Simulated scan of single mutants.
Amino acid sequence: MDTGRKQNLKEARTLQIWNVIYDIIEVVVSLIAGFTANSSALIGWGLDSTIEVISAGTLGWRLHGEIKGLDERRVERRKMITLYVIAISFALICVFISYDSISKLISKETASWSTVGIVILIISLAVNPILIYYKRKYGHKLDSPALLADAKDTFICLYQTVVVLIGLLLVKWLGWWWADPVAALLIVPYAAKEGWEAFSKAQRIKNNIDRK
């Protein structure tokens, strides 16, 4: 492995470490705020952020394997495991968000205002574009579909952040009680799509490994 690629791998791995640290903070704060405020949107957003933790952590694990010189088969196996874990996690999140949101729409439960929730959402609006930029940068430098896909996932998280923020503000300013569970439900199609794509990619990698 040439020196330049190894350095880029190390920098990309460091980026993933910082990504995991931030996302763990994001998950803890958003879930606490979500359950305190009874907000489906905040809870759903926090659960979706757990996928970011898994994705960033396992991608860092895969990059570490390449840095250490693991053979291609073992690196591919790590990618496959990562994708299966992400797919299962997305499926569970879709089920939980759908059940929680529909239940609240039926019972007409209203989310309470959460200053802490709003703060973490605004911070996320600032942090995620930075993460997207650097993931794309190293994705192109390393010719890594995994890093570029992770940048796409972070972009989707940015979109979800905007949706959840708007939902909470509509509840606060206009009294639209239904805006919170509806904002949560808008996360589901994207989570389902990403879960299916992760599963499909894992299956392709598995088939390639089996053929070798």
Rank of each mutant, 00 (worst) to 15 (best):
V162E: 05
V116M: 03
W45G: 13
Y138N: 04
R78I: 03
A126M: 11
Q7G: 06
I17S: 11
C94V: 10
V116I: 07
V28H: 05
Y190K: 00
V116P: 00
N8Q: 06
A126E: 07
Q160N: 15
V182G: 11
S103I: 03
L63Q: 04
P189C: 12
V119G: 02
Y133D: 04
R136G: 04
I156V: 09
Y190W: 10
V163S: 10
S30G: 11
R73S: 10
K108Y: 13
Y159D: 01
V164S: 06
A192H: 03
D48F: 12
I187V: 05
V182A: 15
W176P: 00
A126S: 13
I97N: 06
S39C: 12
W176N: 07
V162M: 07
R62T: 11
Q203A: 14
A37S: 15
A202R: 02
I187N: 09
A192E: 03
H140K: 14
V20A: 15
L147M: 06
L121A: 11
W178V: 10
V29A: 15
K201A: 15
A183Q: 04
K152D: 12
F199V: 01
P181G: 11
M80N: 03
K108G: 12
T58N: 10
S89H: 09
L169K: 03
K104I: 01
I156A: 13
A179K: 08
N128D: 08
L148F: 02
I106N: 06
M1S: 13
L125H: 07
F199T: 06
W61H: 13
K68Y: 07
D23R: 10
I86V: 14
E11C: 02
A33C: 09
G44F: 13
R62E: 12
A192Y: 06
K68P: 00
F199I: 01
D153E: 14
E197Y: 10
I97K: 02
V75S: 04
G60R: 04
T3R: 11
E52H: 11
L125V: 04
T82K: 08
G4R: 14
A198G: 10
L105Y: 09
L9A: 12
S112D: 12
A198N: 09
L169D: 02
S55W: 02
S200Y: 04
V163A: 15
A87L: 02
I97W: 04
Y134H: 10
I106H: 07
E66K: 06
E66G: 02
Y159W: 01
E11P: 01
S112Y: 02
S124E: 12
Y22M: 01
D48W: 04
I24G: 14
Q16P: 00
I120A: 09
D100R: 06
Y22A: 08
T58H: 01
S107T: 15
L148Y: 00
Q160A: 11
I93P: 00
I43G: 05
G65P: 00
P181H: 09
F90A: 15
F90Y: 14
L9E: 14
S107I: 10
W45E: 08
S30K: 08
D23V: 05
A191G: 06
L169T: 04
S49D: 13
E76F: 05
N207E: 14
R74I: 02
W177E: 09
G117L: 07
A149H: 01
G44N: 12
A179G: 11
L168F: 08
S114N: 03
S40L: 05
K193L: 08
S114Q: 04
Y138Q: 03
T115G: 00
I166W: 01
G69I: 03
P181K: 08
D153W: 04
R204D: 10
E52G: 15
A151R: 02
